[in-house]
Deep mutational scan, measured.
Amino acid sequence: MAEAPPRRLGLGPPPGDAPRAELVALTAVQSEQGEAGGGGSPRRLGLLGSPLPPGAPLPGPGSGSGSACGQRSSAAHKRYRRLQNWVYNVLERPRGWAFVYHVFIFLLVFSCLVLSVLSTIQEHQELANECLLILEFVMIVVFGLEYIVRVWSAGCCCRYRGWQGRFRFARKPFCVIDFIVFVASVAVIAAGTQGNIFATSALRSMRFLQILRMVRMDRRGGTWKLLGSVVYAHSKELITAWYIGFLVLIFASFLVYLAEKDANSDFSSYADSLWWGTITLTTIGYGDKTPHTWLGRVLAAGFALLGISFFALPAGILGSGFALKVQEQHRQKHFEKRRMPAANLIQAAWRLYSTDMSRAYLTATWYYYDSILPSFRELALLFEHVQRARNGGLRPLEVRRAPVPDGAPSRYPPVATCHRPGSTSFCPGESSRMGIKDRIRMGSSQRRTGPSKQHLAPPTMPTSPSSEQVGEATSPTKVQKSWSFNDRTRFRASLRLKPRTSAEDAPSEEVA
């Protein structure tokens, strides 16, 4: 009796068929016929556990003709996506030579605008209408194809895939403007070719909807975003200037109206006075309405000098805001240009540092100066060695804690006790272990408590650290204090090793 083939788990290929790579489910599931010992083939499952149809090819690079078809379809799909992405970037994010197409579109729109203006002049109306009709045909074809291509290429973005995504893309403001202008152009052409009475009025009214094509030149909205950011950044200043200017306008108009309503027919109503105030304070000055009385002229002159300053403030605020924003954008561009080279330089330096163990090129690091100058660790070890030599091999803490019996001779020589300023008595072995921070803190506390006492003391002649007598400086308080830590004499004296002298005989010792 033939044995059933062993159940295979995992992703390994079956024996005897090495080139074939078959994806098997996580659990080997066989058909009921196979479990019962029949000759049925096992049921194939996909990666998600769903059964595959009987005629479906197995996924994998070596699955025969199905694999070749899959490779061809995958390559075609990649080319399709690449083309779609390229078209989308050309239309929505132009760079380099892609601006040539947008310059061509701008020339078409500008020519249409010029011809629309010439069509309103009686001398050039006939020729402009003929040229404009031909140009409209060209623009309908160009913009119609462009609109379709834009909607198709938007599928390269995830949020615009599918018919719902394309509809979302078509609802964008600039796409809506394109659609309105396209419909208006078709209506103008249809009305112009019919030759009816309505054609002339339709051409004159709907052609100027094509002015909206100038708005579509900035599809990404960079200028509007820049203007919005400047207004938002200086909103408080703008609101303040406009508010005060509006108050000056209504008060000036009302007072001039009261002064001129009886003697001047131009100011017969408050609305006429508001019109005069707006034209005057905005420095336009049509001259259609002028005050005639001396009181009205004085009020107009005073409020004009006051109001023009507030009406001119928004222009200066926006101008300075634009300058600052442009400078910030230039700085951001320079930062973006330098970020990648800086990151590459840091990575290269780290690779060199991690692979080169000698690091002989590091001549400006802490390790280099640590090898030249005595390190703080060596100074600490030197302090501890000196203290243990004086205390008979014991550390200062051990000397303080060691009990001394009554009447027993002390094995240590008597030492002079010292007192730290602002604290109780402490171990004499710690007097010379006072660090730089303690010395600086002690000097600052003395300056806070009594700076007036220092200038009363007789001035001391500054001497070099080499000429100081070591026996005289029994305490860190003898170090000359200065008002600034930048004094080199104080810094050098604080680094010197001060020996400890006994109370009975204080021989001067120098520590090399």
Rank of each mutant, 00 (worst) to 15 (best):
E146G: 02
I279S: 01
V90L: 15
V256G: 03
G277E: 03
R207L: 08
F179Y: 05
G302R: 00
S235G: 08
K289R: 14
R168P: 07
V256D: 03
W152G: 08
G285D: 02
S235T: 10
F246C: 09
I317N: 08
H330Y: 13
A259P: 04
V109G: 07
V176D: 02
Y88C: 13
A252P: 00
P13R: 14
A187D: 14
G285A: 05
P314H: 06
K325R: 05
M1V: 14
Q332L: 14
A301D: 01
F169S: 00
D288Y: 04
F267V: 09
S320C: 00
T293I: 02
R338L: 10
F251V: 02
Y232D: 12
I284N: 02
E237G: 07
E237A: 07
A323D: 15
Y243S: 06
F267Y: 12
K333M: 06
T282R: 01
Y257S: 04
I317S: 15
N264Y: 02
F246Y: 03
I239N: 06
G277W: 03
D218A: 09
S269Y: 08
T283P: 01
A304D: 09
V298D: 00
V231D: 03
P291Q: 03
R95L: 11
N344Y: 15
G296V: 00
Y286S: 02
H234Y: 10
T283N: 04
T282I: 08
I308L: 08
F267L: 07
Q84L: 06
Y286D: 06
Y243D: 10
I279F: 01
S253Y: 01
T282A: 05
S205R: 03
G307S: 05
L91R: 15
V181E: 06
L91P: 05
E146Q: 05
G221D: 05
W152R: 00
G245R: 07
A304T: 07
R216P: 09
D178N: 02
E146K: 06
S273L: 01
G316D: 15
L227P: 03
G296S: 06
T290R: 11
F335C: 04
D262A: 04
L108R: 02
H334P: 00
P341S: 15
D262V: 08
I284F: 05
G287C: 03
A342E: 06
T290A: 10
G221V: 07
G287S: 01
V151G: 12
V183E: 08
Q327H: 15
P314T: 03
F322C: 12
G165R: 04
G319R: 09
I148N: 15
Y286N: 01
N344I: 15
L249H: 00
P291A: 08
M217K: 00
I284S: 02
P94L: 10
G155V: 02
I317M: 07
L255Q: 04
V100F: 08
F322I: 13
K337T: 05
E92K: 11
M1K: 12
L238Q: 00
G192A: 10
G285R: 02
E237V: 02
S269P: 04
S111R: 06
R82L: 14
S273W: 01
R338G: 08
W163G: 08
P314A: 00
K325Q: 10
R338W: 09
Y160N: 06
F311C: 06
G285S: 04
S265F: 07
T290K: 10
V151A: 10
L299Q: 12
E336G: 02
L118P: 09
D288H: 04
V103D: 09
C175W: 11
N344H: 13
L281W: 05
E146V: 05
L203R: 03
A271D: 04
E328V: 10
E123K: 13
A342V: 04
L212P: 09
A199P: 02
W242R: 05
I284M: 04
F254V: 14
F311V: 13
L324R: 04
S153Y: 12
W224G: 07
L209R: 01
G222C: 01
